[in-house]
Design a protein around this nucleic acid. Structure first.
Ligand code: SF4
Ligand code: SF4
Lengths: 133, 133
DNA sequence: ATTAAATACGACTAAAATAATCGGATATGC
DNA sequence: GCATATCCGATTATTTTAGTCGTATTTAAT
């Protein structure tokens, strides 16, 4: 309940790690995985996903790896979550319309306010505020 | 990710329903389940849990059911979540100490601030603000 | 007393979401 | 050519959430 996924944490750890290196340094998945004890294959797929969305630049081949492609203060937490997990929302009806209670729900409005508050908090949180400038 | 559980929603729906009735009226699980299309057995267990924690008063036997025992503006969302789901926290290390990244985690502090903000938001939200006065 | 309607509760099963792994392809520096 | 990377679809494993079952107990009404 209300937990961040491991994928998201690994992504934030990796971004933080990369940002801590010299700007032009190419950082390999292996380096990050070993430093932070993250399963290599899983991290690999996460970084690929981030590369696909232009957050990282991938350099293939031997001595390859990743570099930051986008400045982290240009992107908020909401965007990262959307990339890795899809649409956000603390209840089903904030995402789709399949809930059987939908038309008779007596808590939808108040819960929706809570949802908005959380989303707006994530909207206002840049990744660099998490990874540290 | 970051979803409220169904159990919690059902609890809030039920509390809202009960609060909408005359103060002394005894409301049966069946009435709530049918009105809101909630699986009866599941709702039953939830209400038992709430009764065990003195939020509801259970009246057994024929024509039995539940009544509010505690005023809903005396309790916040955090308390309800704790009863139904246990300790809150958006990351594992806010609850236990088993995370393998714990000692080397580079995002723990910033994530912890996010966590605190959410918890504090829930702390300041009374149940009556959700169920409607 | 008997019956019907209700709560109480532990055990169980099912479904869904999350986490991790596997196997092979492709790219590139040396 | 070989070692070291990214790339990527498919699969499996694990955990969490959701829902069900069976049975016992309580109590009002008849
Ligand atoms: S309609 Fe009500 S029960 Fe259904 S998802 Fe929205 S808030 Fe939850
Ligand atoms: S230590 Fe880091 S990785 Fe582990 S749970 Fe806490 S924040 Fe997440």
């Amino acid at each position: 309940m209300l937990k961040l996924t491991r994928k998201l944490e690994y992504a934030l750890i990796a971004l933080t790690h990369i940002q801590g290196q010299a700007t032009e340094k190419i950082v390999s998945t292996k380096e990050i995985a070993e430093t932070h004890r993250i399963p290599l294959q899983l991290l690999a797929k996460i970084l690929q996903e981030l590369a696909k969305h232009d957050i990282l630049e991938a350099i293939q081949g031997a001595h390859g790896g990743y570099r930051l492609k986008k400045s982290l203060d240009e992107m908020n937490l909401t965007a990262l979550i959307k990339i890795l997990e899809g649409p956000i929302g603390i209840m089903d009806c904030s995402i789709d319309t399949n809930c059987v209670q939908l038309d008779i729900c007596n808590i939808r409005k108040p819960i929706s306010r809570v949802n908005d508050a959380i989303i707006s908090m994530f909207d206002n949180l840049t990744l660099s505020e998490i990874t540290g400038i």
